[in-house]
Structure formats: structure tokens, C-alpha cells
Nucleic acid binder design. Structure first.
Lengths: 259, 259
DNA sequence: ATATAGATGTCACAATATTTCACATTTCAG
DNA sequence: CTGAAATGTGAAATATTGTGACATCTATAT
């Protein structure tokens, strides 16, 4: 059985069963779990399937909301550390923005119990979570709903932001790099992030090191447009040096007492 | 059984029984109560389920602001009926607005499977629910978050609405009356509803008869500013007559054969 | 009100299980 | 035979789960 056949088989199998454990696929196909994993990775980049702990799941349009939660597991330690470092920057009485994403969700967890904060976000999961804390003043940007990311994008979201003054903006990014700056594969996120750069006093990229060096089709800004970057310790020393020489305040967050 | 399977199982199980004790789930699944709790937490952040003391509950009719007497009793049947009558008005390709509230949530359920619709709302529970249906184009108004109602209010929400053209606006109200018109106890809801009246071609009040005759401190509009009213059969004949004589299209929805 | 028991919920940590990563091995096409 | 692609292996990194200690809530009796 050649790889393409096997992937096809997996895809059909998952279609029938909705959720299938990796072990079952490996046994069924008579290959090692690694082969199954690599096949799943392939199918995942095509968006046909989502991997979950222990197995794989259909990416039925109906179940797309899960894309968010699946991502939550990946590089989780680093995200938590970044979130904590970010939360430590926040002071009483400030107005802060949290961009859509799982890393910023960790920031949200870190600031939830602070007093006197105003939090603006375009993310529904974050709003949902923060609504539990009645001492916070919350603001949602609104706009066109991006189901995959459970957030709002587009002109309407950007307009609302432009009418605000923000102390801190925690900006997420799936791709950033020295030469090409911050970029995204989705056009309608561009204007939201650009609006942020205009209205926030301090503009803080929160992104784990696995995103460094990637780039998407749409360019948002050069890295100099930011004031701070919070990343995990996985960033190359050389890169860290270069970022600092651009005048950026770089924080490398270490997962606390991890074993 | 892998985690994703188990969560799926729990979700479906809760769907059948509505409320399920944690112990029962743990026994049924052969895992510890901690695992069940963590699964429930997961489902909860997705808004699929709500945890209650000792167990977990379906999040279909989630509405904190309402007492359960209203949620569970006869009123609920009326809301469902109103929702269905409202959904029947919606045609392919339209742009519709759903106001925050439990009655409009019933409208959302009724329209979820239609094609080619654009739905605008200020309600987070509704957006959350409708995100499951990828064929819909969704828009959220954004604005200041009203935690109690899980929705957005205030100037920012109103501004966004003013930049739209709506075919149908389904408006909820906790108090309406011939003389005093539609009113609300919360000031920052006023401008949202007034913006709707300006931009929607057809302005439809969806409200059960128990709200008729009440009034709140802030006046929104006289009833003539509306074009339609959908209510349940509990409205007095005389009142119905009067409303119709104002030129309003009045629909009295009857709960379908359900007991 | 206060005390108490029993149920329920939270937390930290150890025990398992899964996933990732680097690299050795195999397969296949030319 | 050779190089590239595909696969398997096992150790290390991460995630998930169960356990038990402890906190909190609820109802009842004093």
C-alpha cells in the first residue's frame, strides 16, 4: 500500500467514525504509529482532519469550532509562560487589548483577577471566559465573525479600535521574522492589527518561538512598529540579539518550575 | 477511549438527559471524577455545557438573567412558538438582526439551517450557537459587554449598526405597552434599539405576552415605530385589536402540539 | 446562631500515556 | 548502485489521568 492510498484510507475511515484513535489506525493498517502520525499531519495541513490527543477527528464543517481548542494543546507550556510574563506587565487602571488566539487567552487567564482593568478583545473565547469576572470592564470589537478562530475581523472591527486609546495591546501572530516583519495568511486580519499599531501606546507581540521565521502572504508591519516582544526561551540567541538591537524590549519567558 | 471520544460521549449523553450527575458519568465511562470534571471544564469553555453543583447541564437555553420559572415553564413553549413563527418570516439571502435575549435565541435555532443568510447580533450566546453553522455569514456588533445579558450595548454597538442595512430586525423587549411604547430599565440598551429602528426595513418585536403592560425607566420608541409584533396567544383580544388598528402586523404564535 | 456530617469541589503531584525528535534503517526509482 | 523518500525505533518532552489531602458548600440538628 503506497502512502497516498493509506492517507485516503485514513480519511475515509475517519469519515465513518468521526473520532479514531491512532493505535486503531496503526493496527488496522499494519504500520507504526509514526507513519500514521505523519499521514495525519499531511491530512491536517489540507484541513481535512484535526488531530486530537490520542487520535484524529473529522474536520466536518459543523465541527470547525474545535480548531480552536485543538490548537490550545500545542506548545502549551510555552504559551502559559508567555501569558504570565505578559500579565505581569499590566498595571491597575489600564486599558488593554487582547488579540484573538490561544497565547493571548493565557494572558487573559493571568489578568482575570486584577482590579480596575478595561479589557478590549476581538476573541469570543476570551470574552466568554472574562465575563466570569465582574470586576472587569469588557469591550468587544465586533465585526465579521471568523468561525475558525472564534473571533472578529475586518473593517468593522478595525473601525471600533480606531476610536479607542489603548495602554497596552497584546498582539498575536502566527508568523513573524526580521526581514518580512509580522504577516498573516488572512487578509481581513491585517487591518485589525494595523489599527492596533495606531492606537496603542505599547504594542506587544506575544508569540512562541515556533512562529518565528515563518511568513504569510499579507504583510502587517515591520517589527520596528512594535515596542515589545514576549517569546519563549526557544528563540535563537543570535535572533534575540538582533531583535534587541532594533530597539525592541524582548522578554524570553521560561516555563515555571517545569520538570 | 481517547479524550476526544469521551468528551463527545459526555456531550451527547448530556444532550439526552439534560442534567447528569458527575458520578454517573464517571461510572459510565470508567474514569475518575477528576477526568470527568476536566472534560466538563473543556466543554464549558466551548459553551456547550454548563456545570452545576454535582453535575453538568445542557447549555441550550442558557440565560442567566432569567429565573427558571420562565425558562422551564409554559413560557418556554411560548418562546419556542414565537421563535418558529419568526423564523418562518426569513427568506433566502436576507440580512437579519437578532437582538439579545432568550426569545431571539429561539429564533436563532429556527434559522440556523437556512442557506445564504447573514446574521447580525449583539448576543454572545447566539453567536456562539450559530458559529456551528458554517454556511451562515455572522456579524457581531461589538461594544461594551453587558455580563448579565451576555451581550453588547452602548454607543459602539449602535454605531456599527448604523453602518448597515438590515432586511429584518428581530427586537426583544422586557416591557412594552400601548401608551408608553417599548421601554427598558437599562439606559445603554436604548441607543442600540433606536439604531435598529433606523436601519431595518422591517422591525419585528418578538416578546411573549407576559411582558405586555410593563414599562421601564427608559423609553425606546412608540409601538408605531415597529412594523410587526410576534407574541403568544396569551395576549388579550382587546389588546390585539388595538395593536392591529395601529397598523401593526400582529402574529400570535401557538405552541405546536407539544404538551 | 453554631456545630456537624456528608457531599462536592480544588489542588498538587505521582503514575501513565502520548507525542516529538533525531537518527538508523528500509524501500524504491532511476 | 545511489540518492531521495518513507518508515521504524527509542529516548526525551509533554499531556493526561488518578489519588489523596484538604477546602468549601448544604442541610440538619442542637
Amino acid at each position: 500500500m503506497i502512502p497516498a492510498e493509506r492517507r485516503d484510507y485514513i480519511y475515509r475511515y475517519v469519515h465513518e467514525r468521526n473520532i479514531v484513535p491512532i493505535n486503531e489506525l496503526a493496527r488496522e493498517l499494519g504500520v507504526s504509529h509514526m507513519t500514521v502520525r505523519r499521514d495525519i499531519q499531511w491530512l491536517e495541513t489540507e484541513g481535512k482532519v484535526v488531530s486530537v490527543s490520542g487520535g484524529v477527528k473529522l474536520n466536518d464543517a459543523v465541527k470547525q469550532e474545535l480548531a480552536y481548542s485543538e490548537k490550545a494543546g500545542i506548545r502549551h507550556h510555552n504559551k502559559v509562560a508567555i501569558g504570565q510574563a505578559a500579565a505581569a506587565m499590566v498595571e491597575d487602571g489600564q486599558v488593554i487589548y487582547l488579540d484573538a488566539g490561544t497565547t493571548t487567552f493565557e494572558v487573559a487567564k493571568g489578568i482575570a483577577r486584577k482590579a480596575n482593568l478595561t479589557v478590549v478583545t476581538n476573541d469570543f473565547t476570551i470574552i466568554n471566559y472574562l465575563m466570569q469576572y465582574p470586576q472587569l470592564t469588557l469591550f468587544h470589537t465586533g465585526g465579521l465573525v471568523d468561525t475558525r478562530n472564534r473571533s472578529c475581523v475586518g473593517q468593522a472591527a478595525a473601525s471600533l479600535l480606531q476610536s479607542l486609546n489603548l495602554d497596552l495591546a497584546f498582539i498575536s501572530s502566527s508568523s513573524w521574522e526580521l526581514e518580512r516583519g509580522m504577516s498573516t495568511p488572512a487578509e481581513n486580519k491585517v487591518m485589525v492589527k494595523q489599527a492596533l499599531l495606531q492606537v496603542a501606546r505599547r504594542r506587544i507581540l506575544v508569540s512562541d518561538s515556533s512562529k518565528y521565521g515563518k511568513y504569510g502572504m499579507f504583510r502587517i508591519c515591520p517589527l520596528q512598529a512594535l515596542t515589545d516582544i514576549i517569546c519563549d526561551a526557544g528563540l535563537a540567541d543570535e535572533t534575540a540579539e538582533q531583535l534587541r538591537s532594533l530597539g525592541l524590549q524582548l522578554t524570553l519567558a521560561k516555563p515555571s518550575d517545569t520538570q
